[in-house]
């Protein structure tokens, strides 16, 4: 299937090999830095919301039990936020802000388009699974022909280098 999305190259079109690497698939270092950037964004938002909430609660006389409950709810919301963040961007156009910065894209192996929301959700949930056995799931990127991690193999996704988008000038 071939689709065109705005000014980008056709999703189904060939992902160009990056000069000097000889591969069209994003490697471990690039993906880790993109993930770190995303984690920074997620943590910054969580931290900001937590600070505002804590400041608001400090003005009120909240019982300790309620504080504990609020902390638990906040932690759950933070996890939901992190999961929703990745699911939304991967399902939208395959690029989180970190991916966009590193110019890589997560796409479906079969359709070369963005993942479905369900696949994106499964991929997010599998991220810790790939990390648990001493990051063995991630180290597979180094030896896989398409630079796939464990979660990529499970949900049939690949991470490719995205072509540079031309900035719209005024």
């Amino acid at each position: 299937m071939t689709a065109t999305r705005g000014t980008e190259a056709p999703v189904g079109a060939a992902a160009p090999a990056v000069q000097g690497t000889g591969s069209a698939f994003a490697g471990l270092a690039t993906r880790m830095i993109a993930f770190a950037a995303d984690a920074l964004v997620i943590d910054a938002v969580v931290l900001f919301v937590a600070l505002v909430t804590a400041a608001g609660m400090s003005l009120l006389h909240v019982p300790d039990d309620l504080r504990t409950l609020a902390a638990a709810v906040g932690a759950g919301l933070a996890v939901l936020w992190a999961v929703g963040y990745f699911v939304f961007f991967w399902a939208a156009d395959g690029q989180t802000p970190g991916n966009r910065m590193m110019r890589i894209r997560v796409q479906n192996v079969d359709s070369a388009g963005p993942l479905t929301a369900r696949r994106a959700l499964v991929r997010v949930l599998l991220l810790p699974v790939s990390a648990i056995p001493l990051f063995a799931g991630y180290l597979m990127i180094l030896v896989d022909r398409r630079r796939r991690a464990l979660h990529d193999r499970v949900v049939r996704s690949v991470v490719v280098y995205a072509p540079e988008l031309r900035r719209r000038t005024r």
């Binding site: 000097g20 490697g27 471990l28 690039t30 830095i33 590193m102 030896v143």
Partner: peptide
């Protein structure tokens, strides 16, 4: 800065792969 980081990480991708192999 982002372009420089991208170039270096993509080079690092290839080096890491060669080291793993």
């Amino acid at each position: 800065v982002a372009g420089t980081v991208r170039d270096r990480t993509r080079t690092a991708d290839a080096k890491l792969e060669r080291a793993a192999w």
